[in-house]
Nucleic acid binder design. Structure first.
Lengths: 116, 116
DNA sequence: CTATCATATGAATAAAGATTCATATGTGAG
DNA sequence: CTCACATATGAATCTTTATTCATATGATAG
């Protein structure tokens, strides 16, 4: 064994409660999507209304290409959906979970500030 | 202007709803903490009971050093707390928000699976 | 005190990821 | 058909970040 004091009981107990490795990885991957400023801003922008790519780029003052790349990631993960309208592509939130996840994070931050 | 069709109205409206840049960055940074498999596993392990470093390392079959580094990140972000007990350091969840944030992500994933 | 266990930490390496640039695709106007 | 606009995408670059290794710190038992 690598260590001297025994916690096999504790480990065993926790181990039984722990979700599968695969689910835990998926969970990490999900939060990773929210763990980038640009993507958070994109998602937040879509809270109220759907938007086309160049509107988002203009709003965030970023290059269209950067936005497109991030939108692709969000779309692949099915956090946003996409619809053609004329020659623009309109993106929208695909899921209300996006709202609630961001909302939880928001709550955490704002409550922290109150404590200070 | 960089583009031709006009969405200044939409941009203006969204812009007013958007939280400050600083808050959005903080939000990204918060989710970044959850966006790593090791950290998610650590947090999840602490759901039921507090644990010392080497118990977590053994549980996750990872090196003590790697766990320590991640625990530092989580502690600096105040997602976990730490208490000395003899010569071991015992870590615990610092905040119920951690549970609810992870829970929301969990919900999203499991509902997705139902749809398939 | 000293030896040993538990943990922390700095530096180095490796891997992942975001942005940019150049260019391709796709669509509608004329 | 052709042009211009909107978007997508591949490759390259730059940054960030996770892990490992070596070692430092800190605490208790004897």
């Amino acid at each position: 064994m690598a260590h001297k004091h025994d916690h096999s009981q504790a480990i065993k107990a926790v181990c039984e409660q722990l979700p599968s490795d695969e689910l835990l990885c998926d969970l990490g991957d999900l939060f990773k999507l929210f763990g980038d400023t640009t993507r958070i801003k994109i998602l937040y922008s879509l809270f109220e209304s759907e938007l086309c790519v160049c509107a988002i780029a203009e709003l965030l003052k970023m290059e269209q290409s950067a936005i497109s790349h991030q939108l692709k990631i969000l779309k692949d993960a099915k956090l946003v959906g996409c619809r053609r309208s004329g020659r623009t592509n309109v993106y929208f939130l695909a899921d209300d979970h996006v709202r609630s996840i961001i909302y939880q994070g928001f709550e955490h931050l704002t409550e922290d500030e109150e404590k200070q």
